[in-house]
Structures are given as C-alpha cells and as structure tokens.
C-alpha cells in the first residue's frame, strides 16, 4: 500500500493526475498535444465541445483560490461538463467531518471528477487511494495544488508555454527563481522539465527558501541571482507569499527585491530572447519589476490562456477521450 502511484493504472494509462513526478515523457507530450487544438477554440464563435457532456465535475477547494478554481471551471464548462464549486475551507471540518467523509458524500452524488485543492501535501493521493479502496475509482481526481507538494496542471501549462516559444526542450537552460521551499509549482516544474529533457535547471533563492537536498531533485542551486540568470533561455518566477516576507525566512520585501527581484538590468544577463514566466498572482516590486512584468519578454498572460487549454486536455483525457 502507498508504494505505487495511483495515477497510472496497470496499463500505464492516466487514471488521475496527481503529480508530474513519474509521468512518462510520452504522457506529458500527449497532454500538450491534446491541448494544442483547444487553444484555437477561443477564436471560434462556438467555444464549447461536447467531450464531458453529462459529466459532473466537482471543484473541491479546501483552500481558497479564485484564480485556479475559475480556470478549472472554464475548462470544464468548455467541455460541456456540469460544474459544482465547493469551498470547503473549514466549513465541514469545523463540523467534525473528515476529508474522506466529505469525499464519500460527494461520490454518492454521482461525481465523475474531483478537482482538489488542499493545504496538506498528499491530500489528493489520500482521496485517490480511498476511491480505489472503496471501489469508486471510476471517479477521477485532478490535483489542483496540494500543500507544498505539487500543482501538476500549472507545471503542464508552463511546459506548454515553453514549448510554444522555444520548441525544443533539450537545448534549454531554465532558471526557477524564488520561494522554492514552499512552492508546489516549483516541484511540478522541476519534474516536468527534467522529464522533458531540459539539460540544465537552475534554482535561484536564498538558503532559507531552498529545500534541503534540492540538488537531489536534479537542479543546480544558485544564491547569486546574477550568476544564476547568465545565459538562460527561460526565467520562471515564483510568487512570494506575504507571510514569508517578514520573519525568520526573509527580513523584508525590499531586501528580497534587491537581491532576488527580477529587474530589466538582471534580465539582461539572460539570453536576449529569454522568456519570463510567472504563475500569478504577481507581487509587483517584490519578486518582479513592473517593467519586466509588462515588458516584451513576459509571457505571463499567454500562460493563463494556455492554462485553460491544458486543463481541458487533462480533463478530457481522464474522461476517456
């Protein structure tokens, strides 16, 4: 028990999307390929496809996130699914209902898919394992961000964006900058980039924001941002949470910006055609200068658009299309 990843069935097919770690390269590529035609939909009069018609998608958000929830909702609706949004912050748990009780109740309402956001790392795994143990694993689980662990659809949409602008992963140097320790986005990006064959992944942050044994995940750690940005093709910025800015991790947002904020001057050290990404929402003046965020190298808004297509691809593949 708990020794095999429940997201792939015994034929190696995608059952749930819980993490990018361990996903074969061809599965990732297939998701990106499936997403490509969906990006064209927005330009059509009729934006909806019938791929999830009659299916019920439950957005289970145990942690607040308007942005991610909305993109999943749009993606599901464009696939003609019925979408039910549940913000379960503390409402149920305050009444003493356990996570798995909640899941069983919603399963009894004939859910077809759970999109799960939870503050605890591994919570979507627990749900998937429980569904398997109770023979309800026709219900698919999509991890929409669990604790510090993973945010696989974000990682995939980032890969879609990089592929869109850079084509070939195997010649790239990619820098991830910011709070890697607490970032589920960074973990998913690192697994995706290494699976797709990126030869050099750099992690740039002060020591307080880098996990122990980060090198074991296949990244090259830099504490000097200027050094780390030299010659990179892609700069992936991370959001710095407000609660990390003052305390024992960092002294102040000002000092952080001075050392790790992306300014035009620092970006100039990267390749001239380097792209700048951010998972949003941005803290302007903390991790990124407005001149960069709004500049010609930023691809932050296309990321959002691609995100809907990638989430459509994931949901339609999980639904068996």
């Amino acid at each position: 028990m708990n020794t095999t990843n429940p997201q792939l069935n015994k034929h190696g097919e995608l059952q749930h999307l819980l993490t990018i770690e361990g996903l074969p390269r061809d599965v990732i590529t297939r998701i990106l390929d499936t997403a490509a035609p969906f990006t064209e939909l927005v330009h059509q009069e009729e934006k909806k496809l019938p791929l999830l018609r009659g299916k019920s998608v439950f957005n289970l958000f145990f942690e607040n996130s308007t942005r991610t929830r909305t993109t999943f909702e749009i993606a599901a609706k464009r696939l003609s699914a019925d979408v039910i949004n549940l913000n379960i912050n503390t409402s149920s748990t305050a009444k003493g209902e356990t996570l798995l009780d909640t899941v069983d109740n919603l399963a009894a309402m004939q859910a077809d898919m759970f999109v799960v956001r939870h503050a605890s790392s591994g919570a979507p795994f627990l749900i998937a394992q429980h569904l398997a143990a109770t023979k309800q694993d026709h219900i698919r689980v999509v991890n929409a961000g669990d604790g510090r662990h993973a945010h696989p659809t974000q990682g995939l949409l980032d890969m879609y964006t990089i592929r869109h602008y850079k084509k070939d992963f195997t010649k790239l140097t990619v820098a991830i900058v910011g709070d890697i320790l607490h970032s589920r986005v960074a973990r998913s990006q690192i697994h995706a980039l290494s699976t797709l064959g990126v030869p050099e992944i750099r992690a740039i942050a002060p020591k307080t924001l880098i996990p122990t044994a980060a090198e074991r995940m296949g990244v090259k750690v830099f504490h000097d941002m200027r050094e780390g940005l030299k010659g990179v093709d892609v700069v992936m910025m991370l959001r710095l949470q407000n609660e990390r800015m003052l305390g024992a991790l960092l002294p102040s947002p000002q000092e952080y910006f001075k050392n790790y904020g992306l300014t035009p001057e620092k970006l100039a050290l990267a390749k001239p055609d380097a792209i700048v990404m951010h998972p949003g929402p941005m803290n302007r003046g903390v991790e990124i200068d407005s001149a960069v965020a709004d500049g010609g190298q930023a691809v932050i808004l296309p990321q959002v658009t691609f995100g809907i297509a990638v989430r459509m691809a994931v949901m339609s593949m999980l639904a068996g299309n």
Binding site: E21, S121, G122, D146, G147, R148, H149, A150, R184, R187, P211, T212, A213, A214, R216, M217
Partner: peptide, 11 residues
C-alpha cells in the same frame, strides 16, 4: 532530506 523535499513535507 530528499524525500521531504520531493513530497513537499515540512522537514
């Protein structure tokens, strides 16, 4: 260590 880093668990 490595496992906590990978799984996003507080070490």
């Amino acid at each position: 260590g490595e496992v906590a880093a990978r799984l996003g668990l507080t070490g």
